Simulated scan of single mutants.
Amino acid sequence: MSIPETALVLFSGGQDSATCLAWALDRFDRVETIGFDYGQRHKIELECRATIRDELAAQFPQWRGKLGPDHLLDLSVVGAIGETAMTADTVITYAENGLPNTFVPGRNILMFTVAAALAYRRGARHLVGGMCETDYSGYPDCRDDTIKALQVALGLGMDKRFVLHTPLMWLDKAATWKLAETLGGVDLIELIRRESHSCYLGDRTHLHPWGHGCGTCPACQLRSRGWEAYRADPPDLATTP
């Protein structure tokens, strides 16, 4: 049975957030989405969002009536603060602190804060994000401790009870593919494979077995390895935390 409440999903158009959107549609009576234009070099992901939403409604009638409006907001201030490999045409490498230069300081914190402000006005208390610290790029704002601290801070700062859901937090990429299969079968797998976007360079010209991308950036490599592991030995989610 669905939870009779509204959830707001941070939906970028990537594999993880598309899986989280399906996860939310499977659990809540009403689901809205929010996306952000922060000057990302892979802005093509924003175009993928509409296609995925439309196809979810068309291919999965059980979710069609649950899918509410989409909200696309301008967060160009993120890029204005300082350049990273996600917001400028620079070589992807690692900084002195060990973090990849694709890390955008404060991005997820700001996105969740803005999403909570919108949720406050939309009467939603459930926020869903695709953050993960099991199989990720080392971003500190993807850690479980960060999300838990944000939930407390947002609740106190707005005097409203928010619940921040991160269904992928303890899943690797192979298990994320398997979760999508569990939620929507091969149709959902194919939709995410073909229409979602993860490549940091914004490459949509090459369709690999795992989806579109350059095939060489960290996001493509992570997605590729996860796909290969999923296809070789689909994990048993019954034993996954």
Rank of each mutant, 00 (worst) to 15 (best):
Q221T: 14
G211T: 13
K66F: 05
R30W: 04
E45K: 05
L8G: 02
V91S: 08
P105N: 07
R204I: 15
G39L: 07
A153V: 15
S137I: 10
D26W: 02
Y38M: 05
A229Q: 10
A117N: 06
V128D: 10
P234G: 05
T93M: 00
A80S: 13
L99S: 03
W170F: 07
P61C: 07
R225F: 00
R49Y: 01
L154G: 04
D145C: 07
M86G: 00
C48Y: 00
I92A: 11
M131P: 00
S137T: 07
V163H: 15
A22S: 09
A180Y: 00
S2W: 08
E133S: 07
A232S: 14
Y139N: 06
G185Q: 09
T113M: 04
L99Y: 05
K148R: 15
P167C: 10
A22D: 08
G98S: 12
L179S: 01
L171F: 12
H206A: 09
F11Y: 14
F11P: 02
A238R: 12
W23T: 06
M131E: 08
C48L: 07
A80F: 06
R194E: 13
M131A: 14
H208D: 11
V78W: 04
C220E: 08
H165E: 12
R231W: 02
S224I: 01
W227Q: 00
L8R: 06
C199I: 00
V104F: 01
L183V: 02
D159R: 15
H126G: 05
E190V: 06
A22R: 01
L21C: 11
S196E: 04
L67G: 03
E47A: 15
F28P: 00
R143T: 14
Q221S: 13
R30L: 07
D54P: 00
A50Q: 13
G215C: 04
S17R: 05
F60G: 01
C220P: 04
G138N: 03
M169C: 02
S198L: 11
E190N: 14
L156W: 01
Y139D: 05
D203P: 02
A232M: 01
G226N: 06
A80V: 04
M131R: 00
G39F: 06
A58T: 11
V104H: 03
C214H: 07
R161Y: 02
D233S: 14
L156F: 10
G130F: 08
I34T: 10
T146F: 15
A149E: 11
G155A: 08
D70F: 02
S196K: 02
T113S: 15
T93Q: 04
M158S: 11
E83H: 11
D233I: 00
T84M: 05
P61L: 09
M1T: 13
K43Q: 12
A7M: 08
V104Q: 03
R161F: 04
V152Q: 11
I109N: 08
R143D: 07
T87P: 02
L201N: 03
T166E: 13
L237E: 10
V9E: 03
M86R: 01
A232G: 13
G215H: 09
S137Y: 10
P140Q: 11
L201M: 10
E195S: 14
L127W: 04
T239L: 13
Y200H: 06
A115G: 14
S17Q: 02
G185P: 06
S12H: 04
D172Y: 05
